[in-house]
Design a protein around this nucleic acid. Structure first.
Lengths: 292, 292
DNA sequence: TTGTATGCGTTATCAT
DNA sequence: ATGATAACGCATACAA
């Protein structure tokens, strides 16, 4: 018979290697994650590994036993929070882990992140240089390294330039288009609405721009919006989002390489790779219009 | 020890069931697929099944041996073309298959699709009723049942109403935002540009709207755009796409149910489920403006 | 009820 | 080189 295909499960049992990597991401309908999952999948595929998808829902988090059932050679975590126990637990069971785009406190695993500090700093500089003083922030969750780091360095840099965010102009919310839409609605309803707003990531920024359009506030005429990540949607003309590029495909590839290299050489000390960021100027920013 | 997790691969070998379903989709950065993959994953998860992701790239198609290596209890195909051999091949090897959103000629497997004919018909009626006569089409690939069916019934209905599409106003291209953008640029460059354009799906429609904005043709002022699927992006204010709803989450759930039921009862005759469609009127359509 | 042996499909080891 | 066989981790069937 020519159509014979050897059984992977038999092979896996004998070699104790499944040639399958677990990728845990948030809901894929959050437009951020496909930009990470897609190149991750491709990188593993190119290396002869298959991938299993795990969706980490806020209401129903991924557990250790789901990932440690012996069906995975390694795991990529893209949704880790600063207090995640998953990375520790998995490594304790001998399962190689790599963190992507998120860091975890007090845990030493392989990790690839973008230079969020520098990115946030450049964005802050950009806004004050444009002349903005009444600035708002729609930051990501403080329990994610990404949200936390970007917020911290954005406000810190602003402070250095003598600009301070008013409390009623900052919102913290989970990453999501809908959340961005809601957030901007509350911000423009403030007694003194911001002339510019920093979004914790592009997905929030898309929601902000969309919500602004909905309320007839023009971007960048009435409101400057800057994002973070540079997902492909940011370059859509209807958004034309000024943002900082994290080079997600590269981040994903690096993460895959790290995991693969650890599979080959399990003894290696944990590595931490931080990728450079650059701001990409598009059409969602401008100088503030005359203040009323 | 309390942290013991039984090995899935051992269990799989013994029970010859992996409790894992293969989901084959196109690149996830194509915004359509997350809307299918996400609810599919959820449905399988709820039923105690894990899922493996397979990305079907145009340049590197999924092969039978990848899916028939014994690591999958069943397969969901979302990228099948009318002449796909995969469904037949998989069923021949005893692997349950369900086709979602796409049909295959001369193959009897389980399938769940939307009522594309009715949807296309309603859209055609809408356009002529609005008064459009110079209508363009950016159809999907003719080698997909979805692209083919929607095109056929759209032009057929138009013909019945006495409206015919000029050859230089129809484009056929793979589904993709970028392709929609390119397509509309060629259409508006025609000697007599269309006042309305039908998109093979929402993803193409998004590209069309974005490309139109880029060329300063206003939607719906200068150009009416209608799509197909009603993915969540279609409801974003910046697109506000008039489209026909296929209820993708429901489609996915039904497909999962079908596959699961076949796993429980392998002998069943193939079923074909076609889900009703409805048009959802938003802001991307209007009557044609005065003709020059 | 608790325990023990056999089979699942493959790789790997060890004789021949 | 080629071929027989044990081991992988679990489930199942059967025996005690």
């Amino acid at each position: 018979v020519l159509g014979y295909v050897p059984s992977e499960v038999g092979r896996s049992l004998a070699t104790r290697s499944t040639r399958r990597i677990g990728i845990v991401a948030a809901e894929l309908t959050n437009p951020f994650y496909p930009h990470l999952v897609e190149p991750l999948h491709r990188a593993f595929e190119d290396a002869g590994y298959r991938s299993a998808l795990y969706i980490d829902r806020t209401d129903d988090a991924i557990t250790v036993q789901e990932l440690a059932d012996g069906s995975l050679d390694g795991v990529v975590l893209t949704t880790a929070t600063v207090d995640s126990v998953l990375p520790r637990a998995l490594e304790d069971r001998g399962i190689p882990v790599v963190l992507v785009n998120r860091e975890v406190d007090d845990v030493a695993t392989d990790v690839v992140v973008a230079d969020n500090r520098h990115g946030a700093q450049m964005l802050a500089d950009l806004l004050v240089q444009l002349g903005h003083r009444r600035i708002g922030g729609v930051f990501g969750p403080s329990w994610t390294s990404t949200g936390r780091e970007r917020e911290e360095w954005f406000v810190r840099t602003l402070s250095r330039r003598g600009v301070h965010l008013k409390d009623d102009l900052v919102v913290r919310s989970p990453f999501g288009v809908e959340r961005g839409r809601e957030a901007i609605k509350s911000l423009v309803a403030a007694p003194e609405p911001p002339t510019a707003v920093f979004a914790g990531n592009d997905v929030l920024a898309l929601g902000i721009i969309d919500g602004a359009a909905e309320m007839d506030v023009s971007v960048p005429g009435d409101l400057t919006v800057v994002g973070f990540d540079d997902i492909s949607e940011a370059s859509w003309h209807r958004f034309s989002l000024t943002t900082v590029r994290c080079n997600l495909p590269r981040m994903a590839r690096s993460a895959a390489e790290m995991l693969l290299s650890r599979l080959a050489e399990p003894g290696q000390p944990p590595r931490r790779l931080v990728l450079p960021t650059e701001v990409v100027l598009r059409g969602s920013h401008s100088a503030p219009s005359a203040q009323p």
